[in-house]
Design a protein around this nucleic acid. Structure first.
Lengths: 136, 136
DNA sequence: ATATTTGCAAATAATTTGCAGTCGA
DNA sequence: TCGACTGCAAATTATTTGCAAATAT
């Protein structure tokens, strides 16, 4: 079960990241929206209330969050990265009709994989593509 | 069980693709190398023996193959697509040490996914990241 | 002859980099 | 003050597009 993150600053500090304003806003956006945004979406949403924000900072911050394992990069699109702050195991479904990305529950640990004896697995990713009920 | 593709031309024709020389060479490369190449790798390898080849043709051809389900695009890298002609269900493992991409066997059908009732699933993808035995 | 395929060059899009200015302990 | 953080602009890289030339049926 997940807990809402009350204080983004503390959360960052716990992960050894200095809680600048931009970083807290970006983290808050990811955590509250849960919409698997692209860099562009993050930037354009936040720049409205934080006019000095630059895309470079969004890129820098996401890189930092990735290293600290606070967010995961999602490679479900052909040519742009999306980001996800949810830590629990789940897969992503991309609807080829509307483009929306849905979460679903998947048992990553229970997944039977053969041929990786002696490999050190650090990260497991699952994504599906198809058509969502709304588009059917 | 898979059968080796003896004749790339016939194979293309069966899939309603006109067997131009470039297309056959690209298909042959994918099928024989099984190395999950990028567009660049395909282009640079083939242009040595096929000097008139252009990257545009590689892109066009891969798009065509994708539509015909002859190849799958792999989004395991951050910013470049890789391609795979193997049709059987398998996952990909990327070693963060050497960058090599390994295949492994995974039971995609047996994968338990909850929360996708009413969704039409057309494609399932699994990829892991970590460190391979050689790099450990 | 006609449609398809190809290739060049330019355009677009995402991301990275260099560097200078700013901010905070 | 000093190092970390930010932001602009330029550079880089992957991919797409427009169109004309080549090719195949």
């Amino acid at each position: 079960m997940e807990r809402p993150i009350e204080n983004y600053g503390d959360y960052l500090v716990k992960h050894h990241i200095r809680p600048s304003y931009a970083r807290m806003k970006i983290l808050q956006y990811l955590v509250t929206e849960k919409n698997h945004p692209t860099v562009d979406e993050i930037y354009h949403t936040l720049v409205k209330r934080l006019p000095t924000l630059s895309k470079t900072t969004v890129y820098n911050t996401l890189e930092l969050f990735k290293d600290a394992k606070l967010v995961k990069q999602i490679n479900i699109e052909e040519n742009t990265a999306r980001y996800d702050a949810t830590v629990s195991d789940h897969g992503h479904f991309k609807c080829q009709g509307c483009g929306r990305i849905y979460d679903f529950t998947v048992d990553l640990d229970g997944m039977k994989a053969a041929g990786l004896e002696g490999f050190q697995i650090e990260e497991k990713n699952v994504y599906f593509k198809g058509v969502c009920p709304k588009c059917l």
